Simulated assay, not measured.
Amino acid sequence: MDIIPQIRAAMHTLLSTTTEAIAAAQQYVKRPDRAKFTPSTLVQTLVYGWLAQPTATVEQLAQMACRIGVDVSPQAIDQRFTLATADLLRQLVLASIQPVIAANPVALPILQRFASVRVHDSTSIGLPDALTSTWRGCGNATTGGGSTLKCGVQLDVLTGTITALVPTITGWN
């Protein structure tokens, strides 16, 4: 089975239809008649821009927007770095987990007697110091007191699907 076409189709749906649905539910666009960016073109700009260059500047992101078909200034992109955009992206990550990530199920006879066998793990990722004013942090030894993103993942071993993804930013102001 060739998985690349499946991933491509899932990414296309995620970065277009799913993004627009999430944005509509959270009333992300305040003035749709005046917006150059749609939620999906903004998300595509950020995703493709950061995939091409993980440390892309707003100028580089504006160039990516142009490639997508949206002519905007770097300031227009900078103005969209808001808590509403962060929430849109968070909800998009949560929506992306089910269709894209799945493992082969485990067929151990001893586990077959259970309806579900779930394995949970988490990790903490230190965030840049520039985010300290927004996310205070919890003062743990790993990050030296800075902000952290803790991400918990739960996998159902019997079905091979992720049943939960819980991103938590400690120290939210």
Rank of each mutant, 00 (worst) to 15 (best):
P54K: 04
T85C: 07
L108A: 14
A102I: 01
T132D: 12
R90I: 01
G137I: 05
P74M: 02
D71V: 12
R113E: 12
R136S: 12
Q75Y: 02
I97D: 00
A107I: 06
A141S: 15
V117A: 10
T134N: 07
T123D: 13
G146N: 15
V93D: 00
A115Q: 10
V70R: 06
A102K: 08
G146Y: 07
Q63T: 13
A56W: 03
A62E: 03
M64V: 15
V117F: 10
R80K: 15
A107C: 08
I125Q: 09
Q91M: 05
D87M: 12
F114A: 14
Q79H: 11
Q63D: 13
A86L: 14
R113I: 15
V100A: 03
F81D: 05
Q63V: 07
N140A: 11
D78T: 10
R80V: 02
V93T: 06
A62F: 01
I68F: 09
T55E: 12
T123E: 05
Q112A: 14
F114E: 06
E59P: 04
Q60K: 14
L131T: 08
L61C: 03
A84V: 06
M64N: 05
P105F: 02
A107K: 13
R80H: 11
A141Q: 13
E59I: 02
C138H: 13
G139C: 13
R113G: 07
I110E: 15
A56L: 06
T132Q: 14
I68N: 06
Q98T: 04
P128S: 05
I110C: 12
V100P: 01
L108G: 09
S96K: 01
Q112T: 10
G69S: 12
D129H: 07
P128E: 08
N140K: 15
P99L: 01
P105L: 07
M64Q: 15
A115G: 14
F114I: 02
W135L: 13
T82Y: 01
A141Y: 07
T82C: 05
I110A: 15
G145R: 08
A56T: 07
V100T: 09
L94Q: 00
I101Y: 04
V100H: 00
S124V: 09
P105D: 04
S96F: 00
D121Q: 07
P99H: 03
Q60W: 09
S133G: 08
T134G: 07
T143P: 05
A86G: 14
L83V: 12
S122A: 15
G145I: 11
A62I: 02
